[in-house]
């Protein structure tokens, strides 16, 4: 049993190590800050070919090319926004996972908020309506009943 576990561990560890090495080998940064930025960007840029993967995850040729371009641009001291703009210029807003706010996409934020507001208003109104209307006459009647029981 222990043996099997050990083999399994070695395999999984080996797998992760080789992956980490592979990325480091290919895109090496002197500056750890840039290295972090590279990882961030490749996570946030979307592969234009394989639509639901970021370029860090994807092995499509275009994703590899985009990664290389990000690396190149970072070496040229581009900052994050400049790299994103560079990509958007070529592949459109589509290439970045955070959509821009414009008249078309504003609804992504407005609709949920609107829904909450309307739902709350509905709850408040219906509660008000159902709240029992009590007048003095009814109170007096209730008092009378209570007193009678005593």
């Amino acid at each position: 049993m222990n043996r099997i576990l050990a083999t399994f561990l070695i395999f999984t560890l080996g797998f992760f190590c080789s992956q980490a090495l592979a990325t480091e080998d290919k895109f090496h940064f002197e500056d750890p800050e840039k290295s972090a930025l590279f990882l961030d960007l490749t996570k946030e840029l979307r592969c234009p070919k394989c639509q639901n993967q970021n370029i860090a995850d994807s092995d499509a040729m275009i994703a590899v090319d985009l990664k290389r371009k990000v690396y190149e641009l970072l070496q040229k001291d581009y900052d994050k926004q400049q790299v994103i703009d560079f990509m958007k210029q070529r592949y459109g807003d589509f290439v970045y996972y955070q959509p821009p706010v414009n008249p078309m996409t504003i609804w992504l934020w407005l609709l949920p908020a609107l829904f909450v507001v309307i739902a709350l208003a509905g709850v408040v109104i219906s509660r008000k309506r159902q709240a029992p209307q009590i007048n003095d006459e009814q109170l007096a009647e209730a008092q009378a009943i209570l007193e009678r029981d005593e």
Partner: peptide, 12 residues
């Protein structure tokens, strides 16, 4: 080096 393709927004 596929640079023009990238500038053109080629996906494949």
């Amino acid at each position: 080096k596929r640079d023009l393709s990238l500038d053109l927004g080629v996906t494949g």
